[in-house]
Simulated assay, not measured.
Amino acid sequence: MARVVCVHGMGQQLQGEDRLRSVWWPALSDGLRRAGAEGLATEADVEVGFYGDLFRPAGQFLAAGDPPYTARDVEDGFERELLAAWWQAAAETDPEVASPDATDALAATPRSVQAALRALSGSKFFANLALRAVVSDLKQVRAYLTDQKTRERARGRVMDRIGPDTRVVIAHSLGSVVAYEALCALPGHGVRALVTIGSPLGMRNLVVDRLQPAPAREGKAVRGAWPGGDKLTWTNLAGAGDVVALVKDLRPVFGDRLRSAVLSNGTHAHDATSYLTDALCGRAIAEGLA
């Protein structure tokens, strides 16, 4: 089993384990170098917990990788709420994006969804994503958090990669939710460092309240389970302009043992490699491997 397990995020349905490792490994290696820990790991130490194919339509080979979604395919409830949250976050970090407060953004009409998608397409964060890719990402997050069969299959893929030799788990975006739940489901595991990057784990209503195991409730406050033993160090890194990592500090939910930091990832705020090359990320990984 690998010493380092990487867990990808949403929108990777046309990728695969080896292809993602070929992208993540050089960035991870650069991060270790920035942290002064060059040579602590080799590419052979790294594996990818891949679940993206669970969201790939069977028997369809689409050039752009996503079904031809439109605004009308955004479903009421979870998908519309997540879209509104992304829009609000984009407006708060990008002056070019109109605030949803000044529109009928939350109205239950295809027109309001179209307005949200149009606003996001003009933002720095979503500028390179086609409309149908944004809708596809919404549906992947909803599928994991609301469909138990999909959840168990994705979580199982990650659990299968975590073995007795695994010391570090690095998880991006939706993958941070998958990895968190996988570690919670593996009592006694030997992982020493969980590094979450671009994580939505701080979103109370949409994510936290749906976690498995369910967080403990103390009045209006909630406290998520710790995904390991006393030797586990959890570091969460959030890009200043990362819309998916809407809540930057996870300590109010998961406790003060968790370390939170905000990074400057430029225009590629949510890109996994932008996180991996940072010295703070390299340091967190090195601590788990040392």
Results as ranks from 00 to 15, higher is better:
R251F: 11
G190E: 08
L206R: 00
E17T: 13
R33M: 12
D53T: 04
A133I: 05
E218Q: 08
T233W: 03
V46W: 00
P164V: 06
R155L: 08
D165N: 14
A89M: 14
F125Y: 14
V169I: 09
R157Y: 12
G59Y: 04
A2W: 01
L62R: 14
L54V: 05
G266N: 08
H172G: 00
G188S: 11
H8F: 06
D137I: 11
A41Y: 02
G52P: 06
D271E: 15
P164L: 07
K124R: 12
W86Y: 10
L237K: 06
A214R: 15
R80Y: 08
P227W: 10
G39Q: 05
D30R: 15
I162H: 15
G11H: 08
C6Q: 06
S264H: 07
V243F: 03
W234N: 05
R155Y: 00
L82G: 12
V23C: 11
W87A: 04
A27K: 10
D209E: 15
R257I: 08
R283E: 15
A41D: 02
G156M: 07
V169H: 04
L211D: 00
P215S: 00
D249H: 02
P110D: 10
G39S: 04
R167D: 11
S176H: 01
D73F: 12
P215N: 00
E96A: 15
G188Y: 09
T277F: 03
G36V: 10
A185I: 11
T267Q: 13
N128S: 14
L131T: 15
R167S: 09
S29R: 14
P26V: 01
Q13D: 04
D101Y: 14
A171D: 00
V7S: 05
T103I: 13
T109K: 03
Q148D: 14
L289A: 09
E75F: 07
A127G: 01
T70Y: 06
A272Q: 02
P200A: 06
D271S: 10
R192Q: 11
L32G: 05
G239Q: 04
R3S: 12
A85S: 15
F61W: 15
G175Q: 02
P110R: 12
G163T: 07
G198E: 00
W24H: 04
L120S: 09
A290P: 02
G16R: 03
Y275D: 04
P26Q: 04
Q88F: 03
D230N: 08
E79M: 13
A35I: 02
S123N: 03
Q88A: 15
D256L: 07
A130E: 10
V244M: 10
G52W: 10
R283H: 15
R56F: 05
L20N: 00
C184G: 03
